[in-house]
Design a binder for these strands. Structure first.
Lengths: 382, 382
DNA sequence: TGCACTTTGGCAACAGCGTTGCGAAAGTGG
DNA sequence: CCACTTTCGCAACGCTGTTGCCAAAGTGCA
């Protein structure tokens, strides 16, 4: 269903926008329910709409082929509830992860599940045009084999960029990318809408939407379903963060939020590649280099504790190759710092949990696909 | 106009909610326009609604006494536009600032302007019941003199608390306040709705809504009107922050966001009263104590730069007694750090501006009143 | 087997939202 | 004085979610 465009300050809601919003909300609940499905009455309870309104909305969605009936629940003494389910094949999106040395392309269905995948070596230094051509070729090959058309393609890559305009600022170590209008270049080449974002934001979005993690509600209860707020900290060749606040990725005024690696946590500390001193990234990677993983985890933990204290989020997730190589040490070390901080502040409900991010190596590409899928479920740029 | 309550996950929008939203949006534009007013056609352009819809909405608002016609614009060749204006006297709210040694009570009209004020000494250590009684007495005296009824009272005070439940966690140095249900106690005593928040959040809300500051748009242009995103850093007897993201105060999952003073920026640094080491608050206040204001400003600047990098906000505002005593030194020192950081990161549009927060000593109380006024304009807990 | 009861969910009528078509009102300019 | 422009309200309309009602589809007891 077409989502209503929102220009600058136009936030008046007419009936069309209202319908889109409610339809997206219902679709989101259907998606979250997964294969188990959800009944009309449950949808009514969760949305606050009347059962009759839900019946009308789901009738439209069924007519559009996005939703189907799928069996019935057990009776509770009357007519059993009819279970509704999202039709996964009703839409697809491409997720493209351009890493420094590798390209991952995935094709995801409406539920976000990967239905096709391809991974090939990549040299980001080969130049923008060559990489765009190569990526477009891979995408087209994947689509041809799958035999489907797509809503569009999401692209995730390292380094600061302008999400709203789809223009790269720079890719560290590859100056030839400075200012490259990747979105328009790829959209022109593929002929479908393209959305560009940082790799950390894509990974965070994927986790926020698909949420293989258990959510933690406001009351402190562990609840299933999507996560409301968390930080995804990615430690690989560099250190960055994706922030999810209120169920959506926080990108900030100039879409540059998440500069976590260059948070200064040691005044006049050792110099960092960025020209500053005492950045978390420099301290953390130096500790890893000299084999002091515990110290690296402590440094990362101090940064995480700063972030948690500042934003009051629910959860910290760790990812990236360096974390993957020492999962237990990092989770334990970061967790210890958060527990100590919570103890000092006398927080009643205990420390914020720390876990390894789900998704693994494919998580960024899956999240990139969500850049196009998420808006269908009302999880776009609200 | 009654704003629709939102329970946990019920975010379905029905026609009543739609009407409330659009009415609040129009009211917000009228408030922002101030004494100059705004015409129906301008409202239509700004909201994206049709002129006829705006006419119907404003007709309802006029019937409710919230809006009035106020002259006409110059003609541009046809019938001149009728100017509409918010009626300030159509509603009032109380703002109560409980500081460690002083209580400030203000009565604000719909536009947020202070129409009555009272300031008296206060001893927070006198105990919760005595303070509530004293505060309620001051509020009642103010209301009796002004001869108006109010929408409710907003209360701002230092220290961490639970905004959603209106319960204090603790007030540093006054353990007898631990866990005190201030909202319910005061609401029961006054007989009007009460909302409780941290002093820094209240100050930030006041600035965000009334915005005597010039806003800075996404394009980098300086634009009038409310601010989209900024951090209010308050340096007094302690150090705290109020964060405004997307036009609203960010409180976080447990309404504890803004713990800025205890961000660690010096690993294994000097001990802080909180039990940790290297907190900004400890470093900054120690520097002030030994007369090194420049160093204090640099420390504050490093914290501010961390915050700006993490959240990508538009503006940093400084407030509090310590800042007020050395305004120029702090603005210059913090600004220098931000400029250096922006230069290192190669940000095109230059550094984030740093300014002294408007509002002065009364700012917190005014912001507290906005805890009740802002929801009328759609600036509540969206 | 039959009947009372419970629960689900669609049909139809309805109130209320913003939209569209149109005309009155209120200016400017020749 | 009249043609023209622009604003803005009235009336009809399409569409939203809501309400009242009833058929459908089960359970459970006699």
């Amino acid at each position: 269903m077409a989502y209503v465009n929102r220009t600058n300050a136009e936030s008046g809601v007419n009936l069309l926008a209202l319908r889109s919003h409610n339809a997206a909300l219902v679709l989101d609940l259907l998606r979250t329910a997964g294969e188990g499905g959800i009944s009309r009455l449950e949808l009514a309870e969760r949305t606050g709409l009347t059962p009759q309104a839900v019946s009308k909305i789901t009738a439209r969605l069924r007519a559009d082929g996005l939703v189907a009936e799928a069996g019935r629940r057990a009776s509770t003494g009357g007519k059993p509830r009819t279970v509704l389910r999202l039709v996964p094949e009703a839409g697809h999106a491409v997720g493209l992860h351009l890493d420094r040395d590798e390209m991952t392309v995935v094709l995801c269905d409406l539920t976000g599940a990967v239905v096709a995948e391809r991974r090939v070596p990549l040299d980001l230094g080969a130049g923008a045009d060559a990489v765009v051509e190569s990526a477009a070729g891979e995408v087209e090959a994947l689509l041809a084999r799958a035999g489907v058309s797509v809503l569009g393609a999401g692209v995730a890559l390292p380094g600061p960029l302008d999400h709203s305009r789809g223009v790269l600022h720079r890719v560290t170590g590859f100056p030839e990318w400075d200012g490259f209008p990747l979105r328009d270049a790829l959209a022109g080449r593929l002929g479908v809408p393209v959305v560009v974002d940082k790799d950390t934001n894509a990974a965070a979005l994927g986790i926020a939407v698909v949420g293989r993690e258990s959510g933690i509600g406001k009351t402190g209860d562990v609840a299933p379903g999507p996560l409301e707020s968390f930080a995804y900290l990615h430690l690989g060749t560099g250190l960055g963060a994706g922030l999810v606040i209120g169920g959506g990725v926080h990108r900030g005024a100039r879409t540059g939020a998440g500069e976590f690696g260059h948070q200064v946590i040691q005044l006049d500390g050792p110099p960092c590649g960025c020209g500053n001193r005492g950045c978390i990234e420099a301290l953390c990677l130096a500790a890893v280099d000299r084999g002091a993983v515990g110290e690296a985890a402590r440094v990362l933990g101090v940064g995480a504790a700063n972030l948690v204290g500042l934003l009051d989020i629910d959860l910290v997730l760790l990812g990236g190759r360096t974390v993957a190589a020492h999962e237990e040490a990092f989770v334990r070390g970061v967790g210890a710092v958060l527990e100590e901080r919570a103890r000092l502040e006398g927080v009643d409900d205990g420390a914020i949990p720390v876990r390894v991010a789900p998704g693994g190596a494919r998580g960024v590409a899956e999240g990139a696909a969500q850049l196009l899928l998420a808006p269908l479920f009302g999880r776009g740029e609200d």
